[in-house]
């Protein structure tokens, strides 16, 4: 019986599903909350699948460790020990510097700087998209990974968390065509928007011609975009080109992070100048003078008025 049924699908059903798909697409494009929740919920399943697939790979990796040469291991251990001593030594200096900076800051506006909380995680896979500027990491929102959190490696900024599910999170690399961040150009103090191109090339357009920036300069995060904390290295300038618009130059840079061989990355889960802290800090600095010492300001104003 089943063999001879036509099972010709109803047009109504097709149309309904088509309309639902189109509605879903447009809602996703707009960025509605419940579509995000749907994405996150189903993403938990797919991220779980990615993690399960990644498991044999890590097992093979750990199996390989059994067969590593003992002397190799010891040389590696010695190297790491040296590096650790070196880093600790530099860290001592850093701690005293930080204390000094905190003291100065507290004199300036009453806020000490925080060392950001970071989370070490492993890259476990990448989605099968033709432009491979996304990858999946093994920590999700149960580990406080939120969409928008900066992701760094040992050298500099890697990207940002795009979606965080129960079993993992997707990270967009800063070289993606859809990614943009605000940077400080070298020592100039001038900021620019650095955009990914989909290749190992980052472009900052419309930089004023007089800007003293040259190949080899380091671009660091400016913190203006509130997505990245200030001062992280982002990219190194490789070339300066003249822009189409007169009076402007185009800065070409390549990321300092080792994007080709990413394995372990750090997620900055609590950026020191996080968006939820920054506005309150701003409002307090704006309102505090008016609230706390009204008399001097009014006297000043009257003095100016007269």
């Amino acid at each position: 019986m089943a063999l001879f049924d036509t099972h010709r699908p109803g047009f109504n059903r097709l149309l309904l599903l088509v309309v639902v798909s189109v509605i879903l697409m447009s809602l996703d494009r707009i960025g509605t909350r419940w579509v995000g929740q749907l994405d996150r919920g189903l993403g938990s399943i797919t991220d779980g699948i990615i993690e399960t697939i990644g498991q044999p790979l890590t097992m093979v990796d750990s199996l390989g460790r059994w067969f590593t040469d003992r002397t190799d291991l010891h040389t590696e251990l010695d190297r790491l020990r040296e590096e650790n001593t070196l880093l600790r030594g530099q860290m001592q200096q850093f701690v005293s510097l930080k204390r000094e900076v905190d003291e100065l800051r507290s004199l300036l506006d009453g806020r000490a700087s925080d060392v950001p909380a970071v989370l070490l995680t492993r890259r476990i896979g990448h989605p099968p998209t033709p432009s491979a500027n996304l990858f999946t990491i093994g920590r999700g929102f149960t580990d406080d990974v939120r969409p928008g959190d900066p992701v760094i490696d040992a050298h500099g900024i890697v990207g940002q968390v795009l979606r965080s599910t129960a079993t993992g999170a997707t990270v967009i690399e800063l070289t993606s065509r859809d990614h943009m961040l605000s940077v400080v150009l070298g020592q100039t103090g001038r900021t620019a928007l650095l955009r990914g191109t989909g290749t190992e090339r980052l472009v900052a357009k419309r930089v004023p011609e007089r800007t003293k920036v040259q190949a080899g300069d380091l671009l660091t995060t400016s913190g203006i975009d509130r997505a990245f904390p200030r001062g992280y290295p982002v990219a190194r300038v490789t070339a300066i080109e003249t822009d189409e618009a007169q009076g402007f130059i185009r800065v070409i840079a390549e990321p300092v992070a080792d994007l080709a061989r990413l394995d372990y990355v750090l997620v900055v889960t609590k950026p020191p100048d996080a968006p939820e802290e920054a506005p309150s800090g701003e409002t307090s600095t704006l309102t505090r003078p008016a609230l706390e010492d009204p008399t001097p300001t009014t006297s000043d104003e009257t003095g100016n008025g007269n």
């Binding site: 798909s21 879903l24 994405d39 399943i45 699948i49 989605p127 099968p128 996304l134």
Partner: peptide, 19 residues
């Protein structure tokens, strides 16, 4: 839809095409 979610693509695009 599952493929859309897995690939971080536009939600509903692959769903439409699969249908």
């Amino acid at each position: 839809l599952m493929l859309d979610v897995a690939t971080n693509g536009l939600l509903g695009l692959n769903a439409l095409m699969f249908t």
